[in-house]
């Protein structure tokens, strides 16, 4: 197993994609394949000792199954000790601040903290004042960097496979992000990652679900699905939270489905080679129809597989780069 080059990776934490430049993003993407191989070993022994003796704490202030599972698996396949903590996102009401909780965890010598929190900026705030490596596993509607990394990895992998070019990049790729962009940390991180990797991004959804001045992020914005899909190489359906119905942001799920669902009908607007992604969990037949989610153009389960490898790469880079200097 290659040691990471400290000249490529020098950051203590992974807080967001916005803080990363292209070479840092590519450093993570290029570190992932070796870990993908670990998970696919013919021997069945899906483990390497890179984080042996280290403590990874999965600290989730919001319910999460797949992200937490993916991080936990990633840590275990790196031979780390893992600890899971779940807490109500309103723990500040009970009196203990995030700083205090983390100080307590650190008093037990944690190495990596994987934090999911409902408030934007929570990992940013902790990273500044604590010595553990902080990995943002989703903060409010701000960022979800490992999701964007695994998405970019999956798109790049598909492009390499289709083109037969093993070093193909996402330069010039056209990606359409469809749905609730405003409330989506996945969308934000993907916009930062994809634009930095040279892709052209279009966001599309009901106007109240598109963020203020989103074009300034370097993306094209439209409320017409036909336009968004017309030249897309990749179509990324974002989750619609069912609770948003009745919030007044759009009239009904029914009309949302008519205007914005990715299904066999709407895919007719897209080029034949367009592939479909979704961050999960899918609201079947709401933002994504079953036949598309389970069809040959879907990369959804490949995203999940790649997610473990990306998270292994991130933990390895954070924990092993600085100590090797």
């Amino acid at each position: 197993m290659e040691q990471p080059s400290p000249t490529l990776w020098t950051k203590k934490d992974l807080i967001g994609i916005r803080e990363l430049n292209r070479s840092e993003i590519e450093c993570i993407l290029d570190t992932a394949p070796q870990f993908l191989a670990v998970s696919q070993r013919a021997s069945g022994i899906k483990k390497v000792p890179l984080l042996q003796g280290r403590l990874v704490v999965n600290w989730f202030h919001e319910p999460s199954t797949r992200t937490r599972t993916s991080f936990e698996l990633a840590a275990k396949r790196l031979s780390a000790d893992t600890l899971s903590m779940t807490a109500s996102s309103s723990s500040h009401v009970k009196g203990e601040t995030l700083h205090d909780t983390l100080a307590n965890i650190e008093a037990m010598r944690s190495d990596i903290i994987v934090l999911r929190h409902s408030c934007a900026g929570a990992p940013h705030m902790l990273a500044a004042d604590h010595s553990s490596h902080i990995i943002n596993a989703g903060d409010g509607r701000h960022e979800h960097p490992t999701q964007a990394l695994l998405d970019a990895f999956t798109m790049r992998e598909a492009r390499r496979k289709i083109s037969g070019n093993p070093v193909a990049t996402l330069d010039g790729a056209k990606v359409a992000l469809i749905g609730d962009v405003e409330h989506s940390r996945v969308a934000r991180s993907n916009i930062f990652a994809l634009t930095r990797l040279g892709a052209h991004v279009t966001v599309c959804g009901p106007v109240a679900l598109l963020p203020s001045q989103v074009e300034k992020l370097g993306v094209h914005s439209t409320t017409r699905l036909e336009e968004a899909l017309s030249d897309a190489d990749f179509i990324y359906a974002l989750r619609i939270q069912k609770e948003r119905q009745g919030s007044g942001l759009f009239p009904s799920i029914r009309e949302y489905v008519k205007l914005f669902r990715i299904d066999r009908d709407s895919l007719r607007f897209a080029p034949d080679h367009a592939l479909v992604l979704h961050p999960g969990p899918i609201n079947r037949d709401l933002e994504l129809s079953t036949e598309v989610a389970d069809g040959s153009r879907s990369l959804v389960l490949r995203q999940v597989t790649n997610g473990v490898a990306i998270r292994m790469a991130v933990m390895h880079l954070l924990a092993n780069s600085r100590t090797r200097q």
């Binding site: 934007a120 900026g121 940390r185 963020p211």
Partner: peptide, 13 residues
Amino acid sequence: NEGYCATLMGLPG
């Protein structure tokens, strides 16, 4: 403030 910075930070505006 609702605007570009709030969009960058994912904060409600």
